[in-house]
Design a protein around this nucleic acid. Structure first.
Lengths: 242, 242
DNA sequence: AATTTTCATTTGTCAGACGTTTAAATGTCT
DNA sequence: AGACATTTAAACGTCTGACAAATGAAAATT
């Protein structure tokens, strides 16, 4: 593990890159302990503070974890699906809010992705997934449900649909997309939407899941997408009018 | 921006979280300058070293950028699609390599996602996208192409297909998935695969894109998925036999 | 007016110190 | 011998103070 003396980047960034490369390439394996900060500072010929800044960069990406005390140190972290979700959601949320992504584009992407798991969800869904969907649908029938509560339930419902596909890689990819975009859509459409209409579509999706009708799920998602897009257009007109 | 004195996490992690929350919530907007390290260390009542570790964590997530000199400092960074790609690819690659994801599952997820953009690609593809696809197909006909070259060209071809959907959010989501999984698949199947067979399927996909036949693209992707899965099974058997 | 010089500000890096945590090693008692 | 308490060394977490390097603004000079 060496750093390039001719690079003009910060030392801590260079060191972080060297260690990151070692992890990605497999030279450092999961749960392997890195040298102590003091040893690293000797190896790279920098101060301990600089090494620490490099390690914090890696920790921010969940590539390492640190443990204090004797026999502690920095260990290569097994990146879990859960941690990866979290990072994806943060990244996706910021990406959408900072890049003026149009409602139309976000909506299209979100439903295209979700439709991708419809056929799988139809064949693989378990009783658990169906129960989660039904529970969220029931929650959505409660008149006292706040807008935040509705939004959370909406996310949970779609999350259950995605998980029903029984493919963790797919779940990881889609959960990030759905969880980042659904709140955005709720924020835009919550004044105009009809809970009843969405609810009935959710119920249809759950029924199609139950009966294993993948095409039915896709069609219903299509309808949901269409309705959401219409709401988006309404809001855009309202905005222009005001 | 305050930190919780009762938390037992590292101070630098708490401070990073406080600033991250401020960015995500919109309290700090793009290109806004954060207080200097000295000012932050006063505000949070910690040393400058601790503040710096927090800032390095945020820099690792591309949430801020720093500039030296007078009137320099840390600025909220506009997260670009390109940066987000990079992070997604790193995360996805590590996730796959560290979690013993089966070839079958990865393959299923990859083609399910790619199929999602087939209908859009059929209607939106431009001459540019088609040209890229044809160029990669031509490259793949060259007998002297190395395995690495083939893999890179394969990724580029599928990337063009994804981009042809004309939805940057979709591109962002799928580019990460495809670029992380395609090399994995090539690594597993490169000894057994028939370049000719894959090439003919690529050509069919390009033709269907040209003629705007979304269903045709999906069917061909399906065939490609099937063939890839078969290769995966062959390799699994070989492994068992040895 | 244009150019050069100065200068204050801010990040990058370093050295050294001390506190805290942790698990292994050691000691002690039953 | 075994269970429990104590010691101890290793390692991270944090702080202080210092200096170097970059950088843009302001002042000085031509």
């Amino acid at each position: 593990m060496k750093i390039d003396p001719s690079s003009k980047a910060d030392l801590s960034a260079q060191i972080a890159k060297a260690i990151r490369d070692a992890i990605v390439s497999g030279a450092l394996i999961v749960d392997e302990r890195l040298p102590s900060e003091a040893e690293l500072s000797e190896q790279f010929e920098v101060s301990r503070a600089t090494v620490r800044e490099a390690l914090k960069r890696l920790a921010a990406q969940s590539l390492i974890r640190t443990q204090r005390g004797a026999f502690g140190g920095a260990f290569v972290n097994r990146l879990s699906f859960k941690e990866a979700y979290g990072q994806q959601i943060t990244t996706s949320t910021l990406l959408l809010s900072m890049n003026a992504v149009s409602f139309e584009i976000a909506c299209e992407a979100r439903f295209a992705l979700e439709s991708a798991c419809a056929p799988l969800a139809a064949t693989r869904r378990t009783a658990d997934h169906l129960a989660t969907m039904r529970a969220e649908i029931f929650r959505q029938t409660q008149p006292g449900l706040s807008d935040e509560g509705w939004c959370a339930s909406d996310v949970a419902f779609h999350r259950a649909l995605v998980d029903a596909a029984g493919n963790p890689v797919l779940s990881y990819q889609l959960a990030g997309a759905v969880e980042a975009m659904q709140p955005l859509m709720n924020m835009i459409t919550f004044t105009a939407r009809s809970r009843e209409k969405i609810l009935s579509l959710h119920a249809k999706i759950a029924d199609f899941c139950d009966s294993g009708d993948g095409a039915g799920i896709e069609e219903t998602l299509e309808a949901l997408a269409l309705y959401t897009r219409q709401l988006g257009q309404q809001m855009a007109q309202k905005k222009t009018a005001s």
